[in-house]
């Protein structure tokens, strides 16, 4: 009896650990990059981007003009680098074709990233 109880507690502990791991945010979003910005330009501005396992550049949505800002999602592998990264980019003013915007660095509201292990291609 006591054995199963202990096991149950072990499972509970593991769940708790998993939860704690999920609580640490590592995915960052850089918002309000000027409209028409490109991935290359971003990499130049942010150089060097600390170690990451996920990077996604999203061009601005033209239907939102003049608010069609670009944005970037980055998932850092080393959480400690985030503060440095934020200090460098948060509030930085960037010029592009006369558009001057102040970019914002935030934790992404949705922290999940695609799994690294790529399953085999969709056989269709």
């Amino acid at each position: 009896m006591s054995n199963t109880k202990e096991e149950a507690e072990d499972v509970k502990d593991e769940k708790k650990k998993k939860k704690e791991k999920n609580l640490i945010s590592s995915k960052v979003i850089v918002r309000r990059l000027p409209p028409g910005f490109t991935q290359e330009e971003f990499l130049k501005v942010a150089d060097p981007v600390p170690d990451h396992d996920y990077f996604r550049f999203v061009p601005g949505d033209r239907t939102l003009a003049p608010n069609n800002f670009c944005r970037v999602y980055i998932n850092f592998t080393n959480v400690e680098e985030i503060v440095k990264f934020r200090d460098k980019l948060d509030g930085l003013e960037i010029d592009k074709n006369g558009h001057r915007t102040q970019c914002i660095v935030e934790f992404s509201p949705f922290q999940k990233v695609p799994k690294k292990l790529k399953k085999k291609e969709d056989p269709k």
Partner: peptide
């Protein structure tokens, strides 16, 4: 179930659209 990345990207985009809507 066939393309793991689709879900995350769509959720990210929808959340951004909601946020940007509040800003504009």
């Amino acid at each position: 179930s066939y393309r793991d990345d689709v879900g995350h990207i769509v959720v990210d985009d929808v959340l951004e659209d909601i946020r940007v809507g509040m800003e504009i």
